[in-house]
Design a protein around this nucleic acid. Structure first.
Lengths: 253, 253
DNA sequence: CTCTCTAGGTTGTATATACAGGCTAGTACA
DNA sequence: TGTACTAGCCTGTATATACAACCTAGAGAG
């Protein structure tokens, strides 16, 4: 299990550690390849691979001739910010509230065990909550958390701190995968979101910390009240946003 | 404009080309590093970098001691990646076809004029096409293109070249914004996608070139046959993908 | 025939070296 | 003072080499 990590990976971990500890802050200069050659006794190609991959992964930004600098994560995090529904709602200037439907300790089975890469029967916490934006249901959060990762999970007051805020406080969640689907909600989802004949937008997200998956969530949203947005380049200026432009009028004929 | 691509990138393009042309199909063996050293006259480290990055990007899968093989399920597209549906389908090793429902010159009005930042009445081309994956409808493309940007738009054979491939050939599309929604399809969408009681996943996308919006599209997908995926950090390899894990079982109770 | 083991191909990593090209500070010059 | 230029650091790429670990087909032993 404890196979020695390759040297370039150790270098990456070293830099990531300095970033997440706060020793290196956004736009700070990261040691150059040659400095790493000196201080870590590696060849320049190994230092190059470590820094290049950190660049690919968005941790740092490299400029030929100048150096390597810690990324300002904002550019990349517009979707990770969506991670915390409470912040998202606050950014819109609205009021967030939350109701816990269920919370329990379960034994992982089926897709939960697979998603979290644990054996069937492993302890996991299950949380089921509804998030409201100005008292309108906006998200049904159906989350499983590895019990060993967050032992005090059931004691948390999730009506004041969302699970994702709680989880990021425990440990940095470094990686995330998600799948976005449209589906016809079943009765339970309809009930909790208070919708009727309406599609739901489902975001299924798995988040990793320290190289292993720690939480797996299905986030159901009412199709008429929620959407995801993204851009590929800074829209920067005050242009009309696509979301503003797009009305609910649909294709005719 | 014509900066020579680095050699490792040329190798990647070569392999990707063979995959999307169908010459290499899922689970086929890709030339080994040493074979590329021979055939392409590069050093093994350069071939290694090309194949390793293709692995990181999910195009191929590498197994120490056995070889490199074309990945199988690339059945999803990246959430934040401007994609060409034909390429996406080709990468899955499937057959793409397309049927033009309508094409016409129109005068922009309402949301189209707003989205493209032009005055009401400006000339725009309207395209309505259905894309098929192995003869199953997978996307209804409802697109508006600024006529001044692509004057010969109506002469194109969109059944062999998709609009997005045609548009990127005219000029680099530098920025894109998109909104993702779940909705209940109306009659026209149902008819063209050949679905019934099913939600649809709608991607609304506006693309910019040279600082102005040039095209605006609504892409409707059947909720049961299409999903978007995203990664925020390389999940590494040899792990089960989230999309593989997530079955259609939904929240109970 | 069956089992074991090994040779050789494949990926994974690490190093040393080399050259090209971008960027900047500071020097030399006008 | 101001401008041009260059030395020096930085990243980006490419190559040659080396060794380790993994996998498999096939040779050889029983």
């Amino acid at each position: 299990m404890n196979a020695a990590k390759p040297r370039y990976q150790q270098l990456k971990d070293l830099i990531i550690g300095r970033i997440s500890s706060g020793e290196l802050k956004p736009s700070d200069r990261v040691p150059s390849e040659n400095e790493l050659v000196e201080s870590e006794s590696v060849s320049r190609m190994t230092a190059n691979r470590a820094l290049r991959e950190l660049d690919d992964e968005g941790y740092v930004e490299r400029v030929a001739g100048r150096g390597t600098f810690v990324s300002d994560f904002r550019s990349q995090s517009h979707l990770l910010e969506v991670h915390n529904i409470a912040d998202e709602i606050a950014l819109r200037g609205h009021m967030h509230s939350c109701k816990v439907i269920r919370r329990s300790l379960q034994h992982a089975r089926g897709e939960v065990a697979k998603a979290l890469h644990v054996a069937q029967g492993t302890d996991v916490f299950h949380l089921l909550l509804v998030h409201f934006e100005n008292d309108v249901a906006i998200q049904l959060e159906d989350r499983h958390v590895l019990a060993s990762f967050a032992p005090d999970c059931l004691e948390q007051d999730f009506e004041s701190t969302t699970p994702s805020a709680y989880l990021t406080a425990i440990a940095p969640l470094q990686e995330a995968e998600q799948v976005v689907r449209a589906s016809v909600p079943n009765a339970a989802v309809k009930k909790h979101l208070n919708i009727d004949d309406e599609a739901s937008l489902v975001v299924i997200r798995r988040t990793w910390s320290d190289g292993r998956p720690v939480t797996f969530a299905r986030l159901h949203h009412p199709g008429s009240r929620y959407e995801l947005t993204g851009h590929y380049a800074p829209p920067g200026k005050a242009r009309t946003t696509l979301a503003e432009v797009v009305q609910l009028e649909e294709l005719r004929q």
